[in-house]
Nucleic acid binder design. Structure first.
Lengths: 218, 218
DNA sequence: AACAATTTTAAATTCATATTTAAAATAAAC
DNA sequence: GTTTATTTTAAATATGAATTTAAAATTGTT
């Protein structure tokens, strides 16, 4: 057979692997199918990655890098913009990232909960904590100097939940073909604005309560 | 060997199965281990349930029924209470249900995303849609008669996300032993109140906007 | 106590798939 | 053009687990 350009087979395997892992999960995905889709031989996985598990981990990293590159965390909003706009940028980036059909990393993460391979330990520290830190700092600014770290963390958690859960469900609906599940989000932009309304109203409510609870009657 | 009381082996299998499926996922859970933990023979699963998959589905139903029985959807709040209190009851019930270490149904659902067995199709219609309908109706009341169904659905979705995602993450953290993941929720009661603050502030913001957009200048 | 129905048991079977192996093919180096 | 390193291939091996089978044990019934 004619040989591929250097690294081409490896790359094809990573892409095919992401697809198959997303479709079938770690255990139900077979090395055979991944190789077939990549147009490679059955032993290519072991040759290039050593094992199915190692391929799986590499495929996640590959998908994550691609999806973050396509949707940078700041959502295209400048560091100098007011905090409200920066939060909107981050919410927009996250929601669009999850909604983007080409991003696979969330599904691989979801799978990790079902079939843990230890990948999350690593990824948590190197990738997810830094992303979270950025959001915490914008929320901290919006809450003002009186807010406790506890309040900052709770607000960030709520915002993350409003972005993650609905969009993960929406994609699961398509992916697993569950027509019984309700379609709630018809327009991404409208949903982003809706989340922002909840987030800002919630943050304002917490701010208000801070001020009250520190009055002269205390 | 001495024989068990009628139905005892079956029940033990259901419980052992829930545990093992939660720990390992569908594929990585073995019939052998389930039987071992239930103190039953290797062929008990096929005798009582016909197949591993049928056991899995029965185990989910069993877990779901138990967890709903332990945390009824209304959260102990009367139908006659004001809508704000009824929403608080539902939020409390959901959050406490997910946090309850003995409830397994959420993890089995999460697994379904990774290793779909078709269970969700059924469950969606018979169990989840009715639960959602109840929440939608309280939210509808809170938003007032001017709100569109679209707005009602978006608000419910945000509230659900704030309850589900953080608590699922928290339990995944324990279950998969990921010390790297941040612990955000230290006190369930405080988190419930935090979610309620966001929910009510968000709903109020949407209400306000309705009123404005229907003014005389329209 | 004998019979029938149910439940439990251990062993055998079947099946699927990850991994290994070694040979063949190709490209790069000198 | 020969040698060397890399990549691809097909076949063989090993492994792990679900399922089936049929016999043995237990309980309930008359």
């Amino acid at each position: 057979m004619t040989r591929q350009a250097a690294g081409a087979t490896r790359e094809k395997l990573l892409i095919a692997a992401s697809d198959v892992f997303v479709e079938k999960g770690f255990r139900d995905a077979t090395v055979a199918e991944i190789c077939r889709r990549a147009g490679a031989n059955i032993s290519a996985v072991n040759y290039y990655f050593g094992s199915k598990k190692a391929l799986y981990q590499e495929a996640w990293r590959h998908s994550f890098a691609e999806s973050i590159a396509a949707h940078p965390q700041d959502g295209g909003v400048s560091e100098a913009a007011p905090p409200e706009e920066r939060l909107r940028g981050q919410v927009k980036a996250l929601i669009e990232r999850i909604a983007d059909e080409s991003s696979k990393d969330f599904f691989i993460s979801q799978m990790e909960f079902a079939n843990p391979t230890g990948l999350l330990h690593e990824v948590m520290k190197s990738e997810l904590i830094p992303l979270r830190e950025k959001t915490l700092s914008v929320v901290r600014e919006l809450l003002g100097p009186e807010a406790t770290e506890e309040q900052v963390a709770l607000c960030e958690t709520c915002i993350l939940g409003m972005c993650m859960h609905p969009l993960l469900m929406q994609r699961a609906r398509q992916r697993l073909k569950i027509p019984e599940a309700p379609v709630v989000i018809h327009d991404l932009g409208a949903y982003i604005e809706h989340v922002m309304k909840f987030a800002l109203a919630g943050i304002r409510a917490i701010r208000g309560q801070c001020r009250i609870s520190r009055g002269p009657h205390r």
